[in-house]
Amino acid sequence: MMRLIRAELFKLRTTNTWWLFAVATVVSTTVVLVVNCVNAHALLGTLDQYLTAHSHGNAVADMPPEFLARLTAEWTSGHDVVTQAATIFTSGQLIGVLLACLLGIVLITGEYHHQTATTTFVLTPRRTVVVASKLVTAIFVAALSWVVSTVISLVAGVAFLSNQGYSSQLDHWSVVRAVLLNLAAYALWAVFGIGLGAVIRSQLAATVTATVLYLAGTAAAASFFELINTYVIKHDWVLTAQVIVPSVASAVMVSPAKTFTESPSQWVGAAVLIGYGIAAGPIGMLLLRRRDVA
């Protein structure tokens, strides 16, 4: 098992995969970090400043009442340095978990894409061990990527907060918890990637599916559950149920504040995500164990 994990890491190191992932991690973390800091700067100011910033040169008094109400609600839920610190320190998540998922996909589908599955399973006929070592490798590399993006976010974030006149906020458990739960999100998405790669063997199809599900999943879920809530089942729990969508679950899990009005508490998101992880790993393993390699 250790041998196979080392071999998998060696395989990652000896192609361009590792630096593509490294560059993507650093760039995406930096971009999201800048956006989050700009937002935090606005939200941590006074309500008047916030409203003025969004009035596009018009008088605040001329704003439509709904718009004014929405901006006020945004400011109220975001005007909290602990929430902002947690958001800034987990800036890597937005794209990072998708990258972790893609990494899991590449680890499995690469074997089919490059027709190396035969070689791999001839080297190690016990397939459970092969898949288990790929799972461990994916989680390990995802964790590394979490370390990189967290270090970048912490350094830049603490500098930003002190510039705004705040302490690092790392003495708040909810901030530390957000950073740690972010690690769990990376690991779980890497496990999904393995499962998805096992189900969809085509590298291109699996990559596109994962990206679309992740990026469009949250918005699609919001409209879908909104429609059901409006026309079919008129209860708030329907909106809360959005959390069953993996991308929504991971956002809920990491954010100490509500991600949407009816969002459940963090542990629900965590439970959903862990549930998917527990399902995806064994499904991938079972598929790869039973399938003929031809």
Binding site: R3, A7, T14, T15, T119, L123, T124
Partner: peptide, 24 residues
């Protein structure tokens, strides 16, 4: 079993080394 059975972007030596590591 198959003529084309290595990652296109990996060198021949590294392909064999990866197999060495996996096989101990």
């Amino acid at each position: 079993l198959e003529a084309s059975a290595a990652h296109a972007g990996r060198t021949g030596r590294n392909h064999l080394r990866a197999n060495c590591i996996a096989a101990g």
